[in-house]
Structures are given as structure tokens and as C-alpha cells.
Amino acid sequence: MTPGSNLPLSAVRVAVDVTAPVRLDVSGLLLAADGKVRSDDDFVFYNQPAGPGVTHSAAAGGGDTITVDTAAVPDGIEKIVVTASLDAPGATFAGTEPTGTVRNADDGSVLASFTPPQLGTETALVVVEIYRRAGAWKVRAVGQGYANGLAGIATDFGVSVEEPAAPAAAPGKINLDKGRVSLQKNQTVSLVKGGRPLLTSVRMGLGWEPAFRSKSIDLDASVIAYGPDRKKVDNCFFGKLMILGGAIQHSGDNLTGEGAGDDEAITVHLGGLPPEVTGLVFVVNSFSGQKFSDVAKAYCRLLDAQSGEELVRFDLTHSEPRTGVMMAKLIRQFSGEWEMTALGEYVDARTVRGMVKPAGQAL
């Protein structure tokens, strides 16, 4: 197909695959006659993978797929636009040609394909649209680009976008513009600096000291990765030091908590996380069964893994006689940035396995 061309759809259920040599975030927006979504529920993407008649999935061979069941699309929806934005911060489509392939979702046969030509400074674009015309469904090649990423597309089509640089719109939410952030329990910080998401590698350092006159205590730091349905994708701990193709790595087990500095650290390459990972929960457990009331100065801190600069710190100011604590969570927003929220919630669990359910509930 060429830009602006259209074809009638010969299938009721169609799948639109969007692929490129680089990592893309693909989404589908259900638009009413006014060209806007009816609500944010009409925005379908990795963190909200299902809408009325439209679903998002990650394709096995790379790329993402938006599937449209035209028979299930509500009467008030005139078109579904399929968009793509670049996952890497600051990257443009110059030299990168994404391809949209429209298939019959039931038998896999290809109905059409479209590669937008001559892309330059765009960081996001509308690839194709599935639309109604005189009671029949058609597909149109679009290729319209945006220089302000997925947020530009979302705003254009009526999705409410939370601007990280405008704290007034999000009470209690802060960013990294003023330097290191010290969080209180349940406070959230957007990992945004100078209006740009921080998508480099970060390191979560966790530390503790034995309480006064207590014996050394063996605590274990772990991270659990979740998908948008709050189901565990994988977990990284002292018995599994690397997961998700190396996107998350554990420093190894510290058996005592003795000494200054972080006792255990977990490095996360945010840009390398697969799209199905939308949430991370960092937890600490007392494998030996000692209670957190025997621990002093437990904390977690997020650092820039390249420079070692401390970005965010959360000190536990109270303890409970339990064996597990959820320290913090990192959540991926649809606009691409990550947010860190301090948790400080105690549970009875001596291993990371016992943390999976309560940590999922905390997302």
C-alpha cells in the first residue's frame, strides 16, 4: 500500500503487526465520529491490552500486534488507528522503516502491508487505520508522524496524558529535576529529568544493619517482574542472578548485612526490558526467619548505574516483627517513563516465592 490508499477488508477479525529493526511500542486507539476516544479505556497498549473489540499482544518474532474484531467493535466507534512509537529515548524514525502488515487473524493470510516512506524527525506515527465506510470495514495506509512521541498521538486523539513536569496535575508526584529525591512511604517519583524519561540502566541498592545488640541477620533482596495482568513474568534473587536476557541482574547474596554501603544490589536495564514487563516490585526477606524488628536502618536507593549518582532514596522509619517487606515498586507508564513508589509494607514470607502474590496486589 502507499500513503492514503485503502482496501476493503475481506476478514471479520484482522491482526495488524508492526515490526521494525528496533524496539517499538505499538498501540490501538478506538475513535468516535469526532476523531477522539470516548475515554482512556479506548486506548489499547501494553499496559492496557484489551478494549472493546481490540486487543494488544507481543508477537513471538518481535514487534507488537493490534487485533481488531470488527464484529465486536461498538457502534459508536468509526475507526481504530494503529500507532507506533520508538522505545529508545530521543530516537527518531530517520533511517528506520517500520512495516505494518494486516493479516486475517483466523488463518494468518496477509491482506495488505505498508511501510511509511521518507521518515525523519518523527518519534511516533500512525501506521494504518481500520475504519467503517457505508457499513463495511476498510484499511487505510496513513504514515502520519509526530515529533513528540506517543504522548503527542494520545493528546491528539483525546487521551488524558499526565505531564510529568506539572506536579499540580498529580498531587504528591515529583520528578528528578531538583536532584536526589528522598521518598516517604507511599510517595511516588517520576523517573523524569528535564522533561525526558530516564530510560538508562538503574541500580536498586538495598541495605540494612543488625539492630543494637542483635546478631547478624541474613536478609535477601529480590525483584519480581510482572505483566499488565499483575501475573509474575520472572523473579531475580540470590538463586537466579540474571533474568530476562540480562535486563535484570543481581549482585549476589550477602549473608550478614555487615559493613557500610549497599548489602545487595539489583541492576535493571530499563530500555532492555521486554514490553510484557510493566511493573517491578523490590522485596527483602529474612530467609533465616529473624524478624524485621531485629533490623536497623533498612533502606533502598535507586542509582544511575552508569554514573553511580543516587537518584531516589527510601528509608524505612519503622519495623514490624515479620519476615518480609515490599520496599518499592517501579511502574512503566504508557508515555514510556517509569515511576517509583515507596511501599514499606510488611508481610510474613521468608522467600521471594511467598512475596509474589502480595507484591502483585501492591502494583
Rank of each mutant, 00 (worst) to 15 (best):
A88T: 14
S251P: 14
D17C: 05
T155P: 00
V283H: 00
K185H: 00
F237G: 03
G261Y: 08
P8M: 13
S190R: 10
S85C: 13
G195E: 02
F212P: 10
L30W: 02
D220V: 03
K79T: 09
K36C: 06
A211F: 00
K232Q: 12
R332S: 02
E309D: 11
P116H: 11
D234Y: 02
G51C: 06
G308L: 02
A112N: 11
L29A: 08
K173F: 07
R132K: 15
A84Q: 06
A169I: 03
T341P: 01
A20G: 06
D17R: 12
P21L: 01
K240V: 09
E264V: 00
I80N: 05
E337L: 08
G51Q: 03
E162Q: 15
G257A: 09
K357G: 10
V283W: 00
S113D: 13
S39D: 14
K291L: 12
S286K: 05
L199Q: 06
D64T: 05
L29D: 05
T188A: 01
E209F: 05
Y146C: 06
S251D: 10
V142L: 12
T65K: 04
F334L: 09
L303N: 08
R322M: 13
S113Q: 14
R13K: 14
L199S: 04
Q361H: 07
L191R: 05
V295R: 01
V127A: 10
A362I: 01
C300N: 06
T65S: 11
G4I: 11
Q306H: 15
K173D: 02
E129S: 08
Q306T: 15
F157R: 15
S319G: 06
V102D: 01
F314S: 01
A134Q: 13
V161T: 09
K173P: 02
M204G: 05
L311Q: 09
L273C: 03
K193S: 14
Y346S: 00
T323P: 00
N6R: 15
F238H: 12
T351Y: 05
A50R: 14
D234A: 10
A168D: 12
E162M: 15
A72C: 07
T101A: 15
D156Y: 10
V81Y: 03
K193P: 04
P197E: 04
Q333Y: 04
R350F: 07
T55A: 15
W137L: 04
M1Y: 09
I266F: 04
P74S: 03
C236E: 13
R350N: 11
L302I: 06
D234S: 14
S293W: 01
K215F: 15
Q306G: 15
V82P: 08
A32H: 07
P21D: 02
R313F: 04
Y146G: 00
K215Q: 15
G246P: 08
V277C: 08
T19R: 12
G108A: 07
T317P: 01
S10I: 15
G120E: 13
Q48E: 14
G135E: 13
